[in-house]
Design a protein around this nucleic acid. Structure first.
Lengths: 207, 207
DNA sequence: ACCTGAACACCGTTCAAGT
DNA sequence: ACCTGAACACCGTTCAAGT
């Protein structure tokens, strides 16, 4: 017992999150426990509480990583072009991520934190970074003075996409095939953007 | 010990779900345990396993009840009229329900069942009943031969609304006030419906 | 300063034993 | 046929005791 400087604090942190990620992939969120993480990295449970406040905090940090993975994945596939085209590609890319990493997506969005828990600032910034990818794809639809509207639209699209994934992945909607998830997302994009277009004042008109 | 016919099987079932509902309201989903339900109804844990397969199954049944409550709540507030008007009222009513019953809504939509678990048919039917309320509000937008499209649109709206509630209630989006939830939902409805309207072929034209 | 592991207070689920 | 409660195999979290 006692100080084993086999690993630095940072190393331990990375090891713990690696282990947590693996466990989630193998047995799902429900099977993720402090004891399993500890034993997998070869330390005692106590050590984990030296790195994280508690299990919830550890999961927040794991989710931070998953958000990064998702962001990088989306950015890699990003295609500049007409908003409809660009956004559609983005959504396909997102859906592909959820299909490939269903359980990771589950921890990210469907793990319930205690009611009172506030998500840390660095976490919200990671989310904002994701939202900015969506904003980028719809930029052409908004004049520079409509930044607020653009942000707002990105929020709505992000939420809508999330809702489609959330309800269909857990079958909380009845049988939904993977194909119809795409279709629903497509319908959301097409119609929402058409609505935005039709309701935007022509820019030149006021001048 | 042994057979205590103090209560019929049906009575026990109702008592258990009543207790479960109360516990969720008091301490949230995380605090809902078989042991607490058992002690609250004055029976042993074993008896619960005589009524339900397991805790997950009990929660599915609890959710069935919550779906009914939500349905009745929405139907009571239903207002016939222009789709935008009708749908907007519906969404406000839904949001009001989530605000008043945050923890119930949490069990309903954010409790994670095991990956493999299929939701029972009677459960999916309760969801369909909800979807039909939405369909009703957008009926005027679709000609009778476009039933499929109408259903599809109801799905998308339902999912979108869910996504907005899910991400903002847990603050997975950064700070979102109750007012902006309404705004986002409003934006979804207005633009999505505008898109549908603008893309619908005028009915008379083909004739 | 860091790490251990026993201890505490919980869990879900099962099942022999009771009436 | 129904109900009990002890038993099993787990949990998250803490903290005195070790080096």
């Amino acid at each position: 017992m006692a100080r084993r400087s086999d690993h630095s604090r940072e190393e331990l942190y990375e090891m713990a999150l690696d282990a947590a990620r693996e466990i989630v992939l193998e047995v799902g969120v429900r099977g993720l426990t402090t004891r399993k993480v500890a034993s997998r990295i070869g330390y005692s449970v106590g050590t984990l509480y030296n790195l994280f406040e508690n299990l919830d905090d550890m999961i927040v940090h794991l989710n931070g990583r998953i958000l990064d993975e998702l962001h990088d994945w989306l950015v890699e596939d990003f295609r500049q072009g007409e908003p409809e085209f660009s956004l559609y590609a983005l959504v396909e890319s997102y859906l592909k991520f959820t299909r490939k990493n269903r359980t990771l997506w589950n921890v990210l969005f469907e793990y319930r934190f205690p009611e009172d828990q506030e998500l840390p600032v660095w976490y919200q910034e990671k989310i904002n970074r994701l939202l900015r990818v969506i904003e980028r794809s719809i930029t052409p639809l908004f004049t520079p003075d409509r930044e607020q509207d653009r942000q707002h639209a990105a929020y709505v699209l992000w939420c809508g996409l999330h809702g489609i994934c959330a309800l269909s992945s857990t079958d909380k909607l009845g049988i939904v095939s993977s194909k119809s998830i795409s279709e629903m997302a497509g319908s959301l994009i097409t119609n929402y953007l058409a609505g935005i277009r039709s309701r935007m004042q022509p820019v030149g008109a006021a001048v």
